[in-house]
Every structure is written in structure tokens, then in C-alpha cells.
Nucleic acid binder design. Structure first.
Lengths: 164, 164
DNA sequence: CTTAAACATTTTAGGCTTAAAATAATTTTG
DNA sequence: CAAAATTATTTTAAGCCTAAAATGTTTAAG
């Protein structure tokens, strides 16, 4: 027999406390690590996290990226990228040019200076991350990777359901 | 016999690619979910995520909280809280008063309006989160909780090591 | 008691961020 | 081909956020 409290047809508040707690814990971990990275980048290299993130994207793309590419990869708004790039061009870390084949498109690249500075920062950054995860076993790392991949897919599908 | 490439005494770049990938995946998940929550809060209730987060803290504290408490709990800077609170007092969602026993301290609470509006939003918010995690099994959820708890502790210890 | 230290908050300066509207260029379509 | 739709980027307005300095208050130490 099915109790009323177990009936799905009767639209009633279900208990999602576990998922909520999980989300808060995920957010806490990210905020904690992100804040730490932010502080260390500023103290050690006088650079902001968004600038570092943008340079990280470009380091993986020797032929440059369009602003749209960057915006999608970094999951930030277009307008945000415009401002970030402006400041990094100004400081000599980025080179920006209009595409030869499509005058709407701006292609940005790391300059020699930008690449050199990024590589130095990235090497140290990697050790910070390693240190922050150092209490996890290799198995923990694998397992987290797997579960977060599943989480990502689940969230993406949910977003798709909403936006159509 | 120990090859030179396996020697630890010789300070050389170790491979932390896995931890780095893990961190990027963690960040991606959080950014994805956070962005989705942000969009839905705005579309459905015309409210920002930081305002929602602040109200969530206060909802759990019927007797109110000091600005410092809020700052610590939300893991944001003091100055940030000042501005957020200002706007929420202005809109009638928060009540702010100076502590009777310590004139440095500001105690903030949800107003009746603030509480009512928050409860409505929170109920819906919970279903969004549940939906975004809906492809995880109960076991996945438990396992993620465990691994994130471990991650949090590891990151906190790393931060402590740095700051002394 | 009085000075110094600690604490809570606000202010400041600069940068980041978003959503939405505007601009400009290209592609598609009737 | 001309109009319409799409695409890439920038601009705008408002708000978020941090680090560091400043302000005002309380507590601790001499």
C-alpha cells in the first residue's frame, strides 16, 4: 500500500535538504580555494584572478582566440571580457587585432611578455592547488573527478530544460 | 636503485596535473550552478544572488546577526556586507540596529516582509537545486559530501599553513 | 586612570560582473 | 539583390567585491 506521504501525484513539498547541503558544501569549497588563490596571486605577483584565468585560456591557444571563445570558455559575459582584455592590452600582456576575414571579430593572443609572466605564475599556482588538495588520496581525486563530471552533466541538462 | 628522476631530494617540478584538473572541474560545476541560480532568481523574483544569500543567513538566525558574523559566514569582506545591508535595509527587507551593549556592533534581522519574501524564494530555490543534482543517486550525494568535506579540511589547512 | 591594543564597521579606490541595449558586420532568405 | 535575421562586440547602468586605510568604540596593560 502506498501512503499519501509517498504519493507523487499529489504535488507536495519533497525533501531536498541533502541536495541543498551538497550545493552549499560545493560552494564553500570553491569559495575557499578561490579566495586563497586570489590572495596568493595578489601577494606574490600583484595580479588579479580574472586576469590570470584569461591568460590561462590564451596560453592554451597559441593561435589566439576570439572574444566570444574566451567568454564561453570562462563562462562570463561578453562585456566582462571586453574590459578585462582592455586592461591586459594596456599592460602589454595581450595583443588584439581584428580578424582579416571577418571585421566583427577580435582575435587576442598573449604577447611574449604575457606568456613569460603567465608561465611563471602558472608554475607556482599549480603547487598551491596541489597543496590545497594534498590531503586527498589519488583515489579520492579520481572519485571526485567522476562525481563532478556527473554533477556537471546533470546541471547542464537542468539548465537546458529551463532555457529550452 | 633509485633513478634521479625519482629522487625527491632534488627539488624538481612534480606533476600536479590531476589536482589542477580537479580544481578546474570543481570551479566549472560551481560556476555553472551559481550562474543558473543567479539567472533564475533574477527572472523569477528580480533579486540578486548575494541578496538571497544574505537573507538565507539571517533566516537561520531569528535573533539577528552582527555584520561580522555575516561577513564570516558568507566568506566575503566586511565592506561588501556594509553595502549589501544598506540596499536591503533601503528596500525594507532588513532591520538594522546598534547593539545596546556595544556601540560598535550593528545587529541585523529580516523584517516581516524580508522573511516572507525569502521563504517564498527559498522554497523554489530548493527545487532548482534538486533538479540540478537530479542525476546523482543518493549514494553519489553521500560520497560527494564526504569527499568535499575532506577537500574543505585540506584547503583550510593549506590556508592556515600560509597565513601562519 | 591612561595609553595601547584589539575590535567592528565604514570608507575609499579600483576592478569585476551582469543584463540589456546599442552598434556594426555578415549571412540568410524571399 | 534587398530586407531580415544572426553574430560579434561594445556600451551602459547598476550592483558586487576586495584590500587597505580610516573611524569610532571597547578592552587590556601598565
Amino acid at each position: 500500500m502506498m501512503l499519501d506521504s509517498e504519493t507523487k501525484a499529489v504535488e507536495q513539498p519533497e525533501d531536498h535538504a541533502d541536495e541543498l547541503r551538497l550545493w552549499l558544501r560545493l560552494l564553500t569549497c570553491t569559495t575557499l580555494i578561490e579566495g586563497e588563490v586570489r590572495t596568493r596571486l595578489r601577494a606574490r605577483f600583484d595580479v588579479t584572478l580574472p586576469r590570470f584565468d584569461l591568460m590561462a585560456q590564451l596560453d592554451k591557444a597559441p593561435d589566439g582566440m576570439t572574444l566570444s571563445d574566451v567568454s564561453k570558455r570562462m563562462m562570463v559575459s561578453n562585456g566582462n571580457v571586453t574590459g578585462l582584455v582592455e586592461r591586459l592590452v594596456e599592460s602589454g600582456h595581450l595583443d588584439r587585432r581584428t580578424s582579416a576575414t571577418d571585421r566583427r571579430v577580435q582575435v587576442i593572443r598573449l604577447t611574449k611578455l604575457g606568456r613569460a609572466e603567465f608561465r611563471k605564475m602558472a608554475a607556482e599556482h599549480e603547487t598551491w592547488i596541489a597543496d590545497m588538495f594534498s590531503e586527498l588520496t589519488p583515489k579520492d581525486v579520481r572519485e571526485l573527478m567522476r562525481l563532478l563530471a556527473k554533477t556537471k552533466a546533470s546541471a547542464q541538462n537542468s539548465a537546458k530544460r529551463r532555457s529550452g
